[in-house]
Structure formats: structure tokens, C-alpha cells
């Protein structure tokens, strides 16, 4: 099973101009593997994730194609997309505390997914409790009756995962699942995802800037910067032999590797540099980097987009 993204562009039209949040991205991910998309905040990775589900705001213009097992998602109507969402591709949204409805009991928010799939109230109730138990809630009944503000961040995260899993989708897109959580809880998230992956054999697309989670959980990594894919590779290769200077910078900024912050800042979307988008921050930038955008070079299982590999 494959999710194939071909030449995807997402442009937001805003009063201050058009923002190219995703710029000619082509990717193929397999549900056999856990794919991680990493990059700094504002690299367009969340937009990419949401565009797969067709959940972008109305001011977004999408071009290119997104194919789910050969079926084109970009051309589907809202109604048809609703059938895809949840049941084929589910989402674990970022900010677990606010991604649950504050006015509705957690149990009901999970039950709703079962109900949508056509189950009776009693069945969905039963399945909800089972699912909560499976997701390591020690008191599923209590949690089901609770409101989101009565739960901790980690519990909310698991509840969100439960919502995503409930309809037994083939894909789960997890958007920044560890953002704002402390180290212990981040580990719990990892355990939960691991369990879901093993139990449900679901394809994972993890969008994160948490490199540690990516390294531990993902089989394959996609590095994004300024709406472009700069490098792809298997997780092991990527972390051991990063090719692109940006990837190297990211890895070098990890705490246990000396926490060397990368120089400079990502440019504003409305004011992107010519040539290679990374050249203003790149320690190896050459004349050509300023002039021409580099092409994608495939080598081994990965690819890289840099003049240094032409």
C-alpha cells in the first residue's frame, strides 16, 4: 500500500502575498514502513500532512496529485473525502490538550468514530472502553466519563490516538505528537505508537521536529525545509550519514551531540532566496548555489537535493 505524492504545491493566498508552503514535493511512502517528516517549525511539513487529508483552510490552492493506492485524493469532493478521513487515513493532531473538544466527554468523542462506522451505541461504547484499556488507561470507565481538561497532556495524546485508531484506518498521520510533552510522556507516546503499529499494522506518517522520536520510531525519514524536500533516506542511513548540510546541521543540534545550534534562521515564506533555498545558512555554499536551484539526486535508498551531490 502506497501513498504517492506527485509534484505537490500548496499556496496560501494572504493579504500580504502568496505563501508557497509546499513547493513541488514528490514523495512515495509505503505503509510497510514508518515514515517521518522532519524539519524546523515552518518547513511546511504539517501543511503537507493536512493536504493529504484535504483539511487545508479555504485560502489554500493545491496543485499536483496525491494518490492513495493509485486513487487520486486531490480530485475528490468533500463528501468523498469524508469517507477517506478517519476510515482510511486518520490524523493525530498536534496540541493534544486543545485537539479534543473541551465540552464533550472523552468517551463520547471516541464513540463517535465507531458510530460513524455504523455501530450501535452499545457496541461503540463497549469498543471504546476496550480501546482505552488497550491504550494503557488503567481506569477506562473514568477516563471515558472525563472531560479533556480533567486529563493530563499524555492522556489526551493517548485519547487522540484512540480516536485515530478507532476506525481501523490504514494510515495514521501524526502531526507533532510529542510537541509540548516532557521526556517521560514522549516515551509513552513512542510506546503507544509502537503498540498501535504492531497491533493494527497501520502505515504511519509522523510529522515531527523531535529527531529522537524520528530516529527511534521511523524506518524512513524525509527532511523538509522551506516547503521543499531536501533529503530522504532510511532512518539509520540518514542519522549515521547525513548528506545534506541542513540535515547535518539538524543532527548536530541534538542535545547529546553537543547541541550546536544551526546558524541563521529559516527565511520567511514570502521572501525566499533564489537558487538553493538553504544557501544563506549553508557553510558550504558556492556560487552556483546562489544562482540555480539544485535538482534531486537519487542514490541508494535515498535522495538528496544539493549542488554538492551533482
Amino acid at each position: 500500500m502506497e501513498l504517492c505524492i506527485q509534484d505537490l504545491c500548496v499556496n496560501f493566498s494572504t493579504p500580504s502575498g502568496t505563501i508557497p508552503a509546499v513547493n513541488h514535493v514528490s514523495l512515495t511512502v509505503s505503509s510497510q514502513q514508518v515514515t517521518g517528516i522532519i524539519g524546523e517549525t515552518g518547513s511546511g511539513k504539517s501543511v503537507l500532512g493536512l493536504s493529504i487529508l484535504g483539511l487545508l483552510q479555504s485560502n489554500a490552492a493545491v496543485s499536483g496529485r496525491i494518490l492513495l493506492d493509485g486513487r487520486e485524493l486531490t480530485g475528490l469532493s468533500q463528501r468523498e473525502l469524508c469517507a477517506v478521513r478517519g476510515r482510511e487515513i486518520a490524523l493525530v493532531a498536534q496540541n493534544p490538550a486543545t485537539s479534543l473538544n473541551p465540552g464533550v466527554r472523552v468517551g463520547r468523542q471516541i464513540e463517535e468514530v465507531f458510530r460513524l462506522a455504523g455501530e450501535s451505541r452499545a457496541e461503540s461504547r463497549k469498543h471504546t472502553l476496550e480501546l482505552l484499556e488497550q491504550l494503557a488507561f488503567s481506569q477506562p470507565e473514568r477516563v471515558a466519563r472525563a472531560y479533556p481538561f480533567e486529563l493530563s497532556g499524555g492522556m489526551c495524546q493517548r485519547a487522540l490516538t484512540a480516536i485515530a485508531v478507532a476506525a481501523r484506518p490504514r494510515w495514521i498521520i501524526a502531526d507533532e505528537p510529542t510537541k509540548g510533552l516532557d521526556a517521560v510522556v514522549r516515551n509513552q507516546v513512542y510506546d503507544t505508537f509502537r503498540m498501535v503499529r504492531e497491533h493494527y499494522h497501520v502505515g504511519f506518517l509522523v510529522i515531527t521536529h523531535d529527531l529522537l522520536l524520528a530516529r527511534k520510531f521511523c524506518d524512513r525519514i524525509v527532511v523538509m525545509y522551506c516547503g521543499r524536500v531536501l533529503e530522504t533516506n532510511t532512518a539509520r542511513e540518514l542519522f549515521e550519514h547525513p548528506r545534506h548540510p541542513y540535515t547535518r546541521g539538524l543532527i548536530a543540534s541534538l542535545p547529546h551531540l553537543g547541541m550546536k545550534p544551526m546558524a541563521g534562521f529559516a527565511p520567511a515564506f514570502t521572501d525566499q532566496p533564489a537558487g538553493c533555498v538553504f544557501h544563506p545558512r549553508c557553510p558550504h555554499a558556492r556560487e552556483i548555489c546562489r544562482r540555480e536551484a539544485p535538482g534531486t539526486v537519487y542514490c541508494g535508498e535515498g535522495s538528496v537535493c544539493c549542488h554538492g551531490f551533482d
Binding site: L50, L53, L55, Q78, R79, C82, A83, V84, R85, G86, R87, A90, L91, A93, Q94, N95, T98, S99, L100, N101, P102, Q109, E112, V113, L116, L160, I163, A164, A167
Partner: peptide, 15 residues
């Protein structure tokens, strides 16, 4: 515009 709406949309609920 709130996040929980995104979750609800991702469940496959209509507007």
C-alpha cells in the same frame, strides 16, 4: 478555527 474541529474533521464528520 480551533484544533478540536480539525480532529473532528479528520474523523470524517461533515461540516
Amino acid at each position: 478555527g480551533k484544533n478540536y474541529v480539525l480532529t473532528a474533521q479528520a474523523k470524517g464528520l461533515r461540516r
